[in-house]
Design a binder for these strands. Structure first.
Length: 177
DNA sequence: GGTATGATTGACT
DNA sequence: GTCAATCATACCA
């Protein structure tokens, strides 16, 4: 499952033709105190217990949407949070949605990413292999670095945050390095 | 039925 | 650096 999180870095994700290269992800396991699936299945995280390859979307702080890719075996309850991506396609559309011009701010962060790609609750449970989504494997695999997770209140010491080495599009809510 | 909490962001001192 | 916004879901009574 952590392998999926690492492998996902570098893939290109497009939503209705708009998107970019995934540069930062975070893994969430069933036995992870910080995971939504910790403690069993609930009405909210039902998607995470479904088939892998689906999109799990939830609202954070009542203000932002966060997008995850369900991973692992069906019924396990594991997913990978998409934390940041490098805008490559549909820059203008993303600028309009985000209201900013700097490409580095278009999708550097879970909430920003969903806003830039126009992902919301209506996409929860959809298959990423089907329209309007499009996943493209990277031609070359660049260096992926492992680091402590950020933005959560529990099990923050687990090094399950994966990001593209040297990328300037990685979110840094509370950078350590 | 009522209260507590968060895998965040953006604005302000 | 500090703090408020804002709401779906979780959990308790």
């Amino acid at each position: 499952m952590r392998v999926v999180a690492r492998d996902l870095v570098g893939w290109t994700l497009l939503v209705e033709g708009v998107g970019g290269v995934i540069v930062e992800t975070e893994a969430y396991a069933p036995d992870d105190p910080a995971s939504h699936t910790f403690g069993g299945r609930t009405s909210r995280n039902g998607t995470m217990f479904g088939p892998p390859g689906r999109l799990y979307v939830y609202r954070s702080y009542g203000v932002h949407w966060c997008a995850n890719v369900v991973s692992g075996e069906e019924g396990v309850g594991a997913a990978v949070l998409l934390r940041a991506l490098e805008p490559t396609t549909g820059l203008d559309a993303m600028r309009t949605r985000r209201g900013v011009d700097d490409p580095r701010l278009l999708a550097a962060g879970p909430g920003r990413l969903t806003q830039a790609l126009a992902i919301s609750g209506v996409h929860d449970g959809l298959d990423l292999a089907e329209p309007p989504f499009e996943l493209v494997a990277p031609e070359t695999t660049r260096g992926v670095v492992e680091s402590p997770r950020v933005g959560i209140t529990r099990a923050t010491d687990r090094p399950w945050r994966y990001s593209l080495a040297g990328s300037i599009f990685v979110s840094r809510p509370r950078p350590r390095a």
